[in-house]
Design a protein around this nucleic acid. Structure first.
Length: 196
DNA sequence: TTATCGATGGTA
DNA sequence: ACCATCGATAAA
């Protein structure tokens, strides 16, 4: 049983998503349920930085769907994509500022693992046993928590995945990866390949 | 009420 | 490269 430090405090989350996203690399997402605790070390994140960001859901403004983005930092934002996958995000920035960090990959430490892997935003939610019923849940516990972990030695920065429609924002370098992890969702320009 | 479109992943 | 699958949003 690995040791988890205290959950990251609310203040940790209350900063712009482009600064929170790299800070989350290496931290451990824990999902607590009757079954036990599922855990994964976060190795890939993307920042979505508010109403001006055409790739951010809040580009549509305040709607029923985006309500939690406008709420306090340190809240889970989960939504269904492509009719099939639940994607997990961390709400960032002060209340009223709709920033979020998408968690795209984890190194699985402890399961449910429903036969799923951790290398992909749709996969990790299945592997950790979370879905959109947890939308709006606090990351201060008791259901979901994030804990300090081993920070990456090197962070790779690239444009975000799947946002080609977002005009100038499609090219923004807002995706962050642990360059030494092999659990990332897809090859990255710098960390791809194996030495010798 | 209806049409369009995804912050994906599995298969060919 | 193609497509399964469905909720949110915008248009009508």
């Amino acid at each position: 049983m690995s040791e988890l430090g205290r959950p990251l405090p609310q203040e940790f989350y209350a900063r712009p998503a482009d600064r929170l996203a790299p800070a989350l690399l290496g931290t451990v997402l824990a999902v607590h349920s009757e079954q036990g605790t599922a855990m994964g070390r976060i190795v890939e994140t993307e920042a979505y930085v508010g109403e001006e960001d055409l790739a951010c859901h809040a580009a549509k403004g305040l709607t029923q769907r985006t309500t939690v983005l406008y709420g306090p930092a340190g809240t889970a934002y989960l939504y269904l994509i492509y009719g099939m996958y639940d994607l997990f995000n961390v709400v960032a920035a002060p209340e009223g500022v709709p920033h979020a960090v998408l968690i795209r990959a984890v190194e699985l430490l402890q399961g449910p693992l429903n036969g799923a892997r951790g290398d992909g935003p749709g996969r990790l939610t299945r592997a950790l046993g979370i879905d959109r019923s947890l939308n709006g849940t606090s990351l201060l516990g008791p259901r979901l928590t994030i804990h300090p972990g081993r920070a990456p030695a090197t962070i790779t920065v690239t444009p975000r995945v799947g946002v080609a429609y977002a005009g100038a924002w499609a090219d923004a370098k807002l995706r962050f990866l642990d360059a030494d992890s092999r659990a990332v969702s897809r090859p990255s320009p710098r960390s791809i390949g194996r030495p010798g």
